[in-house]
Write a protein that binds this DNA or RNA. Structure first.
Length: 261
DNA sequence: AGTCACCTGATT
DNA sequence: AATCAGGTGACT
């Protein structure tokens, strides 16, 4: 599911389940799924927030449970923790009978308990919707490296929240070739790209929230209209050239060879 | 700096 | 049987 917009939608949906209760038990499908979870027992859940693609459950007294959904995870509240579906990989049982559960068919998602939030996100770049995501910061990060711009966007350092879909979409909107060395892109184009990142994530957040409102309809996946992602061979919306797929960093990058130089 | 392992399921 | 998948660490 998740790049930043989907993680944000999941987090907002979680918050609807407040007021929270005390954690009375925890469990996991495999030892690698969660670490230190049992230390959360006896603490109250006090809130849910997001940083980059991470979800944070804040607990009474200061500890947190950090959740990463990876490729296919979803974090939801179920009314009865005993009634878990087959793909629930980890759970926090609350003293009102409910459960906060990680559903994740692919089982790559992770939960980790931390005594404090301090230092947890030191390696993460600025939030795209925050005042810290300045053109100055973004340009400086790009100029530090010759790595392809698409990889820079996915590193969570120049900015957090972009994944394979929205990185490709932002680059299409900006008319920049995904393999272009970051430090060879003009300042003007970098500033334009920064704006498109914000725009793409904003539009994607809107559709992710809409998707999560519809009960039953599109609870999985989102309905953001992609221009290039997954459209290999199709005609570009702008110039009709055939969209291409190329490997980059072990993933598929989609782009328009004519619109993106 | 680039590749690969981590997982399971859907599609070719 | 092989390839691919909205992510990220941990390796060469």
């Amino acid at each position: 599911m998740p790049e930043l917009p989907e993680v944000e939608a999941v987090t907002r949906k979680l918050r609807v389940a407040s007021p929270w209760a005390e954690i009375v038990a925890t469990g996991q499908f495999r030892p690698t799924t969660a670490t230190g979870l049992e230390r959360a027992i006896g603490l109250r859940v006090e809130g849910a927030s997001r940083r980059g693609k991470h979800i944070l459950l804040s607990l009474s007294g200061g500890p947190v449970v950090r959740v990463h959904l990876k490729m296919t995870g979803n974090l939801v509240v179920i009314p009865d923790v005993r009634l878990r579906t087959a793909t629930v990989r980890a759970w926090l049982a609350l003293n009102d009978g409910r459960g906060i559960v990680l559903e994740d068919p692919r089982a790559l998602g992770r939960l980790t308990f931390h005594e404090t939030i301090d230092g947890l996100f030191d390696d993460l770049g600025p939030e795209p919707f925050s005042a810290e995501f300045t053109a100055q910061h973004f340009v400086a990060e790009a100029q530090r490296t010759k790595k392809p711009i698409k990889l820079l966007l996915m590193e969570q350092r120049a900015v957090v929240g972009l994944g394979n879909i929205y990185a490709a979409e932002a680059l299409f909107q900006a008319g920049i070739h995904p393999a272009k060395p970051s430090n060879e892109i003009s300042v003007v184009r970098l500033k334009r790209l920064r704006g498109h990142i914000v725009d793409v994530l904003t539009a994607a957040l809107d559709s992710a929230i809409a998707a999560y409102e519809q009960p039953g309809a599109f609870t999985e996946g989102e309905n953001f209209p992609v221009a290039v992602y997954g459209r290999e061979g199709e005609a570009c919306w702008r110039c009709r050239a055939a969209i291409r797929r190329m490997p980059q960093g072990g993933r598929s990058t989609y782009y328009c060879p004519k619109c993106q130089r």
